[in-house]
């Protein structure tokens, strides 16, 4: 059986909120190392990958591999009943037809219990190779959201260019064109504001802004976002879910190709 207790319901609430417009139904795959999710959007252009390692929970117990097939709209309805600071416990049997969710206020004076019906989901799984990216950018997540939102007002696509001069986001549309250039920046007093750029070779790729703006719904999960680019491979946008390494929410986006 599965029993997983999260100290803050906020994490799961925000994850589901960030991905529910991209994917409707998905399996939460539970095993002894934690809870993972991988799902593509309907058009197979974007992929969501979530990993919550066992050490993100206390306690965590999962004796066998369990797939929890969840409709995210339904899960959203149940999670709405949890306060951000509630303690959240997930429970399921080995071959479950429902997921039990318990929300407890921190001072334990309120306990809410819900059962969510599960479904059988037969989803395609993609093997994502470990990649050494040509460019890795770590920046404030709200800054990335602002760039994507601002450029989407002009165009449906953005070209992201990484070079020794910095990272340049360029778009052009019917009313005109625009660009934003980011340079490495270190704020000694406020580390969250840092922009870190690692570059091994120049990169230029074009992406649909509609998807990028969608990914940015995860900005509330983490102060920083990591964006990884290599020529002719999907973009990776990654948000840390906890201070523990390995627990993250990742989005992959297939590039636009040719002219």
């Amino acid at each position: 059986m599965l029993e997983a207790r999260l100290d803050q319901a906020e994490i799961l609430k925000k994850v589901v909120d960030a991905i529910k417009d991209l994917v409707q139904d998905c399996n939460f795959d539970c095993n002894d190392s934690g809870i993972a999710l991988q799902a593509m959007d309907n058009s197979h252009v974007a992929l969501v990958s979530m990993n919550l390692q066992a050490d993100s929970f206390a306690p965590y117990r999962c004796d066998r591999n369990i797939a929890l097939g969840v409709n995210l709209t339904s899960l959203t309805k149940v999670l709405r009943a949890a306060q951000n600071t509630d303690i959240l416990t997930l429970r399921a049997l080995d071959a479950p037809d429902s997921l039990n969710l318990v929300f407890e206020s921190q001072d334990k004076d309120r306990i809410s219990e819900y059962d969510l019906k599960l479904m059988d989901i037969d989803q395609e799984h993609l093997g994502i190779p470990e990649t050494e990216y040509a460019a890795t950018i770590k920046m404030p997540s709200v800054e990335f959201r602002r760039i994507c939102t601002d450029l989407m007002a002009l165009s449906e696509s953005v070209t992201i260019e990484a070079s020794k001069d910095g990272i340049k986001f360029t778009c052009s549309g019917d009313i005109g064109n625009g660009s934003v250039t980011l340079r490495q920046h270190t704020n000694v007093e406020n580390e969250k504001e840092n922009i870190e750029i690692e570059l091994s070779e120049p990169v230029a790729l074009t992406f649909s802004l509609k998807y990028l703006v969608n990914f940015c719904k995860a900005a509330g999960l983490s102060n920083t976002v990591t964006i990884c680019l290599s020529n002719e491979v999907p973009l990776l946008v990654s948000y840390a879910l906890t201070s523990k390494a390995g627990s993250n929410l990742r989005f992959y986006l297939a590039p636009k190709i040719g002219d």
Binding site: L47, A254, K256, D259
Partner: peptide, 14 residues
């Protein structure tokens, strides 16, 4: 203009 690619063009379907 540019064409939107799909993820299966880059990642292997398991």
């Amino acid at each position: 203009s540019s064409q939107q690619s799909r993820l299966e063009g880059f990642f292997k379907v398991m």
